[in-house]
Design a protein around this nucleic acid. Structure first.
Lengths: 146, 146
DNA sequence: CTCATATCCGACGAAATCACTCGGATATCG
DNA sequence: CGATATCCGAGTGATTTCGTCGGATATGAG
């Protein structure tokens, strides 16, 4: 998650912290982080004052890596997957001309995802004092207004 | 569907025909074609010898049009949709830095989809010799089973 | 040592979506 | 009339997604 990018270099961050900042249930994050750890993107420290940390610098983690870790191989259709392992040939494969379309879409997606790293999504930590004030609800946001 | 592109110009094609060629349940296609008709991509002729026909040439129908008709607005996440109408602002919108990622992904997808038309997916009917096996120099409408 | 703080683990549950079905009404050609 | 089609809308079943729950295990501080 982006929050982990924010904390990079400042020691491990506990899920309780992140849950508070992201406003998501801790138990849910717990589940997500398992995938990230299995993918080798984060490391964990158990016990008091423990938490999670990025194993690499945010600049070195592409969003494609993150998404693959969280949601599996990138594939608009299961017949056009990133990962040769989980590729499933549909029985129509012979006469199916649509496959090339999905491959193109997939390549477009992976291209976009590869072009961005975690660092691109970490809000610039310019100045903590202006943080709260800068995000003042002056935005018109017509839909779903509180 | 692609089959409709194949039949373009040869009069309406019934769902029963298409179902046989595509090996999909007729009742299911019936449902899909409703969306295509509502989107103005196909026109229908009722009664015996009726069926469906493309309203435009395959070259003039982008796959983005088809996909939007079938699956709604193109959006990897509901906060990054094609269609301003169905856009839903999540409550995190202010501090959410991830949105730009989804917008990029969406643009990549629509770009890929816009770059292909139905005609690109219609198997070339110019010359049967380029098919899997060149058999007859005539035009016996290949692939049609019995 | 003990206790609070965390990660770890596995299973469960509700809600939405996807692919597909069913039954029947209506229009058109021969 | 009757066969062939589209039209229409409600319904089912499997899978996925988001989120929950309860408890076991590891670690640092007092």
């Amino acid at each position: 998650m982006v929050q982990l990018g924010r904390h990079y270099g400042t020691g491990p961050a506990s899920l309780a912290e992140i849950a508070a900042e992201e406003d998501l249930p801790r138990a849910y994050l717990e589940q997500l982080v398992v995938s990230l750890r299995d993918a080798g993107l984060v490391s964990s420290t158990r016990g008091a004052h423990g938490g999670y940390e990025l194993t690499r610098a945010p600049e070195a983690i592409s969003m494609a890596d993150v998404l693959r870790a969280l949601e599996g191989p990138i594939a608009p259709m299961l017949c056009a997957t990133d990962d040769p392992e989980h590729g499933i040939l549909c029985d129509r494969s012979a006469r199916c001309t649509v496959n090339v379309l999905w491959v193109r879409v997939r390549d477009a997606v992976t291209g976009a995802l590869d072009s961005m790293t975690l660092a691109d999504l970490v809000p610039p930590r310019t100045d903590p004092a202006t943080a709260t004030a800068a995000i003042a609800p002056i935005q018109p946001t017509p839909l779903q207004g509180a």
